[in-house]
Simulated scan of single mutants.
Amino acid sequence: MAPADPGTDDTLDLTLPPEFLALFAPPDAPYGRSAPGSRPGRADPDHCLVGDIARWAPADTPAGPFRLVPVDAERDLALVTGWMNDPAVAQFWELAGEPAVTGRHLDAQLDGDGRSIPCLGLLHGTPMSYWEIYRADLDPLARHYPARPQDTGVHLLIGGAADRGRGLGSTLIRAVADLILEHRPGCCRVVAEPDLRNTCSVAAFLAAGFRLSAEADVPGKRAALMIRDRSLRHLL
C-alpha cells in the first residue's frame, strides 16, 4: 500500500481502550493503583473495571456474615490509618505515618478509573479488615507473570490483632475469592502476590484454595504468586 500523502486532510482518530493503554503504564507504577494520568473522576459503577462491589451480596462464612463495602475516604480514613500504623501491618504495607499517607494511597485508587477498589471487610456488620480488589491484568503486576484477560487481584490486611492467627484470614480470603468469581463471570482466576517473607499470609492463601504458581521479583519485594482457578474452585 502506498504511503499516505502527508498533505491530505483525511485523518483517522484512533482511541485506544484503557485496557490496552494500561499494558504500557510506567514500570514504577504502584501495585494495585491506577496508572498515572488516568483519572476520570471518583470511581463509580459506570466506569468501574472490577464491578459494582457495593451491590455484591454478603457472603455466609463459617465465621459469620461477611461483606465488602467500598471505602469512603472521609468516613474511613482514621480507621484505615490506624491499621496501617500497626507494626505487623506496616512491615509489609509500608504505609505507616500521618493520615495523609493513607489518604494518598486511597485517593490514588478512588480518583482512578475503577481498576482498583479499596474496601472495608465487615464481619457481622463490624469493619475488621481492609481489601483492595483490582484488575491484575491491567496492573504492573501483569509484567511479572503470564496474565490472562480479566484476572482479578486481591490485597488484604486483618485490622485487629485478636482476629489474626486463628484461621480467620483464610476463611475470608476464600469468601472474597468466591464473591469475585460469582460476580465477575469473565474472570477465570483470582490472583495475589504476598511477600514471601509473610509466611502467615502465604499459608492463609494456600488454606483458602489458592496454589503457589511461582515466585516473582516485583518492586520492593520477592512475591509468592498465588492463583485460585475457577475450574478448581469446588475442588480446593
Rank of each mutant, 00 (worst) to 15 (best):
E19W: 00
T152D: 00
L141Y: 03
L12R: 09
T8D: 06
L79F: 07
T8R: 05
G167A: 08
G159A: 12
D46S: 15
Q109P: 14
R104Y: 12
M128L: 14
L181K: 01
M128T: 15
L106F: 05
G37Q: 12
L196V: 14
A2Q: 15
A147P: 12
G37F: 09
A214C: 07
A59L: 07
T126G: 06
A214E: 11
G112W: 05
C188D: 14
H47L: 13
A108W: 10
H234T: 14
T8K: 02
L235K: 13
P127G: 06
L206Y: 00
E19N: 10
A136G: 12
G209S: 05
P36A: 08
G97D: 07
C188T: 14
S201Y: 11
A63W: 01
V176N: 05
D60F: 15
V50Q: 01
I227W: 01
P26M: 04
H155T: 01
P194H: 07
S129G: 14
D111S: 15
D178L: 06
A63E: 05
A224P: 01
L157I: 10
A214I: 03
R39C: 14
W83N: 01
R197M: 13
P17Y: 00
R135F: 00
D113W: 11
G220S: 08
L14W: 07
P87V: 08
C200M: 12
A4G: 13
T61Y: 11
D178F: 00
C48A: 15
E132N: 12
D139V: 04
C48R: 13
D163L: 15
V71Y: 04
G82W: 08
Y31E: 11
F66I: 13
W83D: 02
D46H: 13
H144L: 08
V190N: 00
L181W: 02
A208L: 05
C48K: 09
D195R: 04
G114V: 08
P118R: 03
E132T: 12
R33Q: 15
L21A: 13
L95M: 10
R197S: 10
P194L: 04
A175D: 04
P3Y: 00
P140Q: 02
I227T: 06
P58Q: 04
A29G: 10
W93V: 09
A223G: 08
F66G: 08
R222A: 03
R222W: 04
R230H: 09
D76M: 10
I133A: 01
E182P: 06
D5Y: 02
L232A: 15
G64C: 09
S34C: 15
R143H: 13
L77H: 09
M226H: 01
H155Y: 10
S201A: 13
P45D: 07
A203Q: 13
T102Y: 03
A161P: 11
L77G: 10
R143V: 12
V154D: 00
I53Y: 00
P99D: 05
G209K: 02
I173V: 14
D52S: 08
R39K: 13
R164H: 09
D44C: 14
H234G: 11
A63F: 02
F205R: 06
P118Y: 02
S38W: 15
V69E: 13
L110S: 09
A161D: 07
P40D: 03
D107H: 15
T199S: 06
G160I: 07
P146F: 01
L14M: 04
A192L: 03
G32C: 09
R42Q: 12
L168W: 08
